[in-house]
């Protein structure tokens, strides 16, 4: 499956400044692994040992994956994926 992934400003250092890249995968976990393969370092900014980082939001077709199946969310051809860091603080 080939999908477009929108990259937030703070992670564009990993994509050569590109705002969107294409990636492959049948699940979100596979898409993240493909992103890491092509843009080394980005994976660690999205995942930690427990899965998707608490303050990173990933949306598949405008739905927060936390309300879908998280990293197991199935990805179909032409889906659109958006990554946004949380806007949060104390």
């Amino acid at each position: 499956m080939s999908v477009d992934v929108r990259i937030p400003t703070i992670l564009r250092t990993y994509t050569g400044g590109e705002k969107a890249v294409t990636a492959e995968g049948a699940t979100l976990a596979e898409v993240v692994a493909d992103l890491e393969a092509n843009h080394p370092g980005i994976g660690e900014r999205l995942l930690d040992e427990s899965g998707l980082r608490r303050f990173v939001n990933i949306y598949v077709n405008d739905e927060d994956v936390r309300f879908l199946a998280g990293l197991d969310t199935a990805i179909a051809d032409k889906d659109s994926i958006t990554i946004l860091p949380a806007v949060a603080g104390g």
Binding site: N57, D64, R66, L84, A86, V87, A88, G90
Partner: peptide
């Protein structure tokens, strides 16, 4: 009173 976070749907 000690934390803020934009709702994820609102953020998108």
């Amino acid at each position: 009173p000690t934390f803020y976070e934009f709702d994820s749907t609102d953020l998108l």
